[in-house]
Design a protein around this nucleic acid. Structure first.
Length: 107
DNA sequence: ACCTTGACCTTGG
DNA sequence: CCCAAGGCCAAGG
């Protein structure tokens, strides 16, 4: 059967969401890190922007608040929610951002 | 098919 | 750390 690019994109999306599921409470990872890992492990190249879009349009529930910007910044519009969840997790914070030097986690 | 948008990143100042 | 510029790439208009 012919090569189907959409199934690759689909597989990559599932992979990204699976990786997010693996982030432990109290830790956090970045869009860029997930993109690199998903690119290495999966069938297609994944960029940081795609990781964000995949979670924004995700059907199933994932701990999205444990994925932050490269400098620990939280997603605009959801920072209140994220901050609350992160506090419950006991994630190290510095002001309104995650302290990645202590919290950074990779698969 | 072109243009704009977006839960982004790196580099340079 | 902040800002600006350039790069990235799928989706929607």
């Amino acid at each position: 059967m012919p090569l189907d690019a959409s199934s690759d994109a689909d597989a990559s999306s599932r992979l990204v969401l699976d990786l997010v599921d693996q982030v432990p409470a109290g830790r956090a990872t970045t869009y860029g890190d997930l993109a690199r890992f998903a690119s290495d492990l999966g069938p297609a190249r994944v960029t940081a922007r795609m990781v964000g879009r995949i979670m924004a349009t995700a059907e199933r529930d994932v701990p999205w608040w444990r994925v932050v910007g490269h400098d620990g910044r939280l997603p605009p519009g959801l920072c209140e929610q994220a901050l609350e969840r992160l506090s419950e997790d006991g994630c190290p914070l510095r002001g309104d951002r995650v302290d990645l030097r202590r919290a950074r986690w990779s698969p």
